[in-house]
């Protein structure tokens, strides 16, 4: 039926660790994102308050974008370490 990956993949013993780590980090980011959406919905005026010379909405927006990248880099680092240790 043509299933399976396009290139041959070796067995990944770190898969379980990576999946659990991914779920945990997903939950953390989702909670932050959900807080942002709920705040905008229930109390949008809070987003107009000034923090570090900017509106809270701008600070939230930048933070969500930067947080995504920081968490992605941390996730990759931990996954790479796990792959090196478990698959060697």
């Amino acid at each position: 039926m043509g299933h399976g990956p396009a290139v041959k993949l070796g067995k990944d013993k770190a898969a379980t660790y990576k999946t659990r780590l991914g779920v945990k980090m997903f939950i953390v980011y989702t909670l932050v994102y959900a807080t942002f959406v709920i705040l905008n919905t229930t109390n949008p005026k809070v987003m107009e308050s000034i923090i570090f010379g900017q509106t809270a909405a701008v600070i939230w927006g930048f933070s969500l974008i930067v947080l995504a990248l920081v968490m992605a880099v941390i996730y990759n680092r931990l996954c790479t370490n796990a792959e090196e240790q478990m698959n060697s």
Binding site: P5, A6, K18, T19, G22, Y29, G61, L64, A68, Y75
Partner: peptide, 28 residues
């Protein structure tokens, strides 16, 4: 800009939950 924030947040779902399993399970 809310669209920008939402679109980018979607990549977290792709990275943490979907990227590696999709690669492992699919072909084309």
């Amino acid at each position: 800009w809310m669209y920008s924030i939402g679109y980018l947040a979607g990549w977290i779902v792709a990275l943490f939950l979907v990227a590696e399993p999709m690669k492992r399970l699919g072909k084309y």
